[in-house]
Nucleic acid binder design. Sequence first.
DNA 1: CGGGAGCTTGAGGGAAGTCAACCGGGGTGG
DNA 2: CCACCCCGGTTGACTTCCCTCAAGCTCCCG
Lengths: 245, 245
Amino acid sequence: MNAPPRISALQRTQFVTSGILSAEDVEALEAITSAPRSLRAGVDLVSEDLRTDNIHLLTEGWACRYKSTRSGYRQITGLIIAGDVCNLDSLMLPQVNFGVRTLTAATAIGMPRDRVQALAAERPGVARVFTWLAIAENVVLSELALSLGRQSARERVAHFLCEIAARLGGRGASTSDFELPFTQEQIADVLGLTAVHVNRTLKQLREEGLIVVTNRRIHVPDMAELSRVGEFDGSYLHAVPAQGG
Amino acid sequence: MNAPPRISALQRTQFVTSGILSAEDVEALEAITSAPRSLRAGVDLVSEDLRTDNIHLLTEGWACRYKSTRSGYRQITGLIIAGDVCNLDSLMLPQVNFGVRTLTAATAIGMPRDRVQALAAERPGVARVFTWLAIAENVVLSELALSLGRQSARERVAHFLCEIAARLGGRGASTSDFELPFTQEQIADVLGLTAVHVNRTLKQLREEGLIVVTNRRIHVPDMAELSRVGEFDGSYLHAVPAQGG
DNA sequence: CGGGAGCTTGAGGGAAGTCAACCGGGGTGG
DNA sequence: CCACCCCGGTTGACTTCCCTCAAGCTCCCG
């Protein structure tokens, strides 16, 4: 009666890690999921203002959502790491108003919008997980707005590093060590700064001993201290979906 | 067989205006909606970091979502106008990390989270409308991020005014006239600026003839021009939910 | 009439941007 | 295999946008 054992590409995605879906829900989603595609760095999965009929999921690597100004400035509105949905908006909008671009080599899978919608209509769990994903994205986005609007460059960079550390899994650890495969220009595009100023700010944090940078890795000897500088409180990232009535 | 005709408090909310819900869906939601409450200006409907078990909807007046920095700065992460949901996050999160505060006298209705979740589980339309709402909120929020991160004060103010005009219903009109019942400090808290600088920027826009301010009303003689200054494209606000397969 | 909230304006300072030069490393092509 | 180039990081000098502090104003309300 059991399906043949195989590694599901969905296992490490938010669909499963959210704990909302039943095994049957996961299987149903699995059935409409395309095979993994490998992507180079710097490739657009979704283009600004273009129609897409697929929901993409990143299973390996890094990507980002971004928006551009007519004058050519860019704002990254969200980092996408392995397990994240790339373009949730496409579930409801025929046309998204942001782009999705890989920052490193990456792997992605996809699901047709129509099929997902059909599944959501018949499976409350599937509907629920998408609402949850949208809300979780919202939480991160409003935290970004606070950072962009009301934090200094120093605070923003510290906050950013804390967020990455937290999302990469280190929860509550007093120290942290992770890969940060971004150029300073990309960091600048997340934080609403210039690459030059990100450089100077990172230098300052280095000189204060708050971070140690080697190659493209970051070591944080004291997460509590860095969190204090960035006014970071990771609880917003680890929220658990409320159980229904 | 018909229900007795009465004015539903939900009629003018996004639930209905999105066009997703069937009449039965609306009635089911109606049944769990509390009577309208009147609120004074400057009152918290939801407090930062406090538990809430109710989804609030604004039916009259203005409110905002906001977040605060430890150092006391405030960032408004979303304006709430009549018909908007105040704390969608509460649908999935036992505890939100923002506050909701009225900016003017206002009226709100509420629904218990548990009841809403139960409805969403049995009515795909209800589930769908909440996903839609979350995604729509997302779209506005990422536009805000772009503005905060990559626009000058002048551009931000222009963009802000265009967004208000668009959300208040004037679509595609070449001129606009609307009430703006905010203090300059509140505008500053939306745009990540100081009240003083908002003042200067508004003055500049006034002197250029881009806006005419009388009391707390804004008249925009040329929306196209103001949109150009703010790099505003309202299409992101008027997106229509994609129909399922 | 007094007081407070919000608007307005000025003067000065500081954080971040701009422009520019230099460096180091990795990939590529001759 | 080496030279070159390009990308990204680093640093300096200068500029500018926005903030801070402060004072005076208007209007509304008690």
